[in-house]
Amino acid sequence: MKQESGGIKLLFIVFGVIGLGVGWGIVFLTKKLRKTKKSKLIVLLPSTISLVISIYLMYVGNVVVKGIDGAAYMMFSIIIFCFGATVFYMTDRTWKN
């Protein structure tokens, strides 16, 4: 029983670290696209795609996987959703026409 608990903790840690890595990737990609003076559509594309993917992962974690493994997927998708929504809001708010 003790060994299973360690595996579950590791699962949450791995999904959390991967989620943070993907989130920071979204931030850096959006910054890089913004520096190249691309259109607003192109600059908002990484955060929009991350929002769509995170909503799909929420569905997968809740309906398909279920249980404690599904909770790890949900944590992963919530981290990506938070990064994507924040980047989308900040980029859209500070955009100068």
Rank of each mutant, 00 (worst) to 15 (best):
K31D: 13
V17C: 12
G25M: 15
L11D: 01
L57P: 15
D92L: 11
L29K: 14
Y89K: 02
K38H: 05
K9C: 01
I80G: 09
D69C: 02
T91P: 07
D92Y: 13
I78E: 00
T91L: 05
G7E: 15
S47R: 02
K32D: 15
I18D: 04
V87F: 04
S77P: 06
Y56N: 07
V60E: 05
Y73H: 07
V87D: 00
G7N: 15
F81L: 13
I8M: 14
V63R: 15
L45R: 05
K9M: 07
E4C: 01
Y89S: 07
F83C: 04
K66Y: 06
I79C: 14
Y59S: 05
T86V: 05
V17G: 13
F28Y: 15
V17K: 01
F12L: 11
I55Q: 09
S77M: 11
L44P: 12
G21H: 02
V27Y: 08
A85N: 07
Y56I: 02
N62V: 03
T36A: 14
T86N: 00
K66E: 08
W95N: 10
F28N: 10
V63G: 11
W95I: 11
N62I: 08
I78N: 11
S39W: 00
G25H: 06
K2N: 00
M90T: 05
P46C: 06
Y73N: 01
M90C: 11
V63F: 15
T36H: 09
C82V: 02
I26G: 01
K96M: 15
K35V: 06
L11A: 03
K37Q: 10
R93G: 03
I8T: 14
V63N: 09
N97P: 08
T48C: 08
L51K: 07
S50R: 09
L33M: 00
L33K: 01
G67Y: 09
Y59T: 01
